[in-house]
Design a protein around this nucleic acid. Structure first.
Lengths: 174, 174
DNA sequence: AATAAATGGGACAAACTTGTCCGATAAAAA
DNA sequence: TTTTTATCGGACAAGTTTGTCCCATTTATT
C-alpha cells in the first residue's frame, strides 16, 4: 500500500492511519482463513448460478461475494485444479459447477483443498501431546465443541447452502 | 532464519527445506493465535505455581510450556500490564498470580487481552451483514457451535484449569 | 484475421504474526 | 559497592497470509 504523504510533515501507511483512527477490524475469532471464506462464498455463488444454468465470470463472482478480484482468481484456480469447479477460457468463459459436485461436496473438503489440511483434532492450546488419554486442562471443555464443529463441516454439503433464501448484501442477493 | 548453505550448490531457508521434506505442520484449525496459546499455557503454569507459593521465572515458564522464550517474555509483559499476573524484577524475581485473579479470570478475558478483541458473533464466512435476521447460508449450522464456544470461554475460569491432574509433557508435569 | 473478453500463472508487494536481540533497569546476593 | 540475576522495552528479522500486477493463453465475436 502506498504511503499517504502530507507535504513533508509526516508519512504513514494507510493501514497505520486506519489503525490510529480505530477503523481497522481488530482480531476476531477466525474459524477460517480469508482464502477459505472467499472460497466458500465463491463456491456457493457459482453453485447457485450453475443450478440456474448460468456460467459465472471472475468479475461477477468477486462483486457478488465482495472479495478482492485478483486474490479470488487465485482461489478459483485452486478450486479448478481440484475439480471442485471447472473453467472455460476465452470470451464468454467463466466458472461452473457440476450438479454431482454440488450434491456431494462437503464444506470440510472445500476447506482442506484451500488450506492444504484442516485438523479437527488439534489441541486448543497447541499441545501436541494432548489426547483423551493425556488430556490438557482444556480438553474436556473443548471436546464436544470440536466434535460438533467437525461433524458440521463433514455433513454440510454445498447443496444445503444454496437451498436457502438468498442472503442480501446491500441491494443485491448473494 | 539463517539460510543453510551447501558449498555454493544451492541455498534455501530452513523452513523451505522443512516444507520440501514435509516436516512442517500445515495449516490446522487454529482456535487461537500462537500468542494466545502461549498466554493460556503460561497463565495455567504460573497459577499452579502461585497456588504452591512458588514464583515462576521466564526461563522456567517457557521450558515448562515449550514456547519461545523471548516471545513468551513479550506476552507476559502484556499480561502484567493488564494485571492478570504481576512481576518482581531483579534476582529471585519472576511472575506470580493472585488467588483472587485465579478464581475469577475467564479464558475469554485472557484471550481478549492478548488479541485485543475476540468476537464470538462474527460470521463464519466473513459476511459483516450476517445476522439472525439476515442469516448467511451457514448461519444456522454454526449458531449453536458458536454459542457453545462463547459460553465455554466466558464460563471457564483459570481455577478450573489448574484443579485437574497435571498434564504431562515428556517426563515433567505441566 | 484481428479484436475483445476471458482464465492461467508467475513475480512481487503489503500486512500481520511470530520470533530474536540487545541494552536498560531493578533488586538481591556476594 | 560490585556482581549477578531478573524483568522491561524498543528495534528489527523471519515467516505466513493476503493481495496486486502483468502478461501469456485461449476462445468467441466482428
Amino acid at each position: 500500500m502506498s504511503p499517504i504523504c502530507f507535504e513533508f510533515f509526516f508519512q504513514i501507511t494507510l493501514s497505520e492511519l486506519k489503525k490510529s483512527l480505530f477503523l481497522l477490524d481488530k482480531h476476531i475469532e477466525n474459524m477460517f482463513s480469508k482464502a477459505c471464506e472467499y472460497a466458500i462464498r465463491a463456491t456457493i455463488f457459482i453453485a447457485k448460478e450453475s443450478m440456474k444454468g448460468k456460467r459465472s465470470n471472475l468479475t461477477e463472482i468477486s462483486k457478488a461475494i465482495t472479495s478482492p478480484i485478483a486474490f479470488t482468481a487465485k482461489i478459483l484456480q485452486t478450486l479448478v485444479k481440484h475439480k471442485i469447479i471447472f473453467s472455460i477460457k476465452g470470451a464468454r468463459g467463466g466458472f461452473e459447477m457440476l450438479p454431482q459436485t454440488i450434491n456431494t461436496l462437503s464444506l470440510k473438503h472445500l476447506v482442506v483443498v484451500i488450506d492444504d489440511d484442516y485438523s479437527t483434532t488439534a489441541c486448543i492450546i497447541g499441545l501436541n501431546k494432548c489426547s483423551s488419554e493425556n488430556p490438557c486442562p482444556l480438553h474436556e471443555q473443548y471436546e464436544s465443541i470440536r466434535t460438533d464443529l467437525s461433524k458440521m463441516l463433514e455433513e454440510t454439503k454445498i447443496i444445503q447452502l444454496i437451498e436457502k433464501e438468498s442472503f442480501k448484501i446491500g441491494n443485491h442477493l448473494f
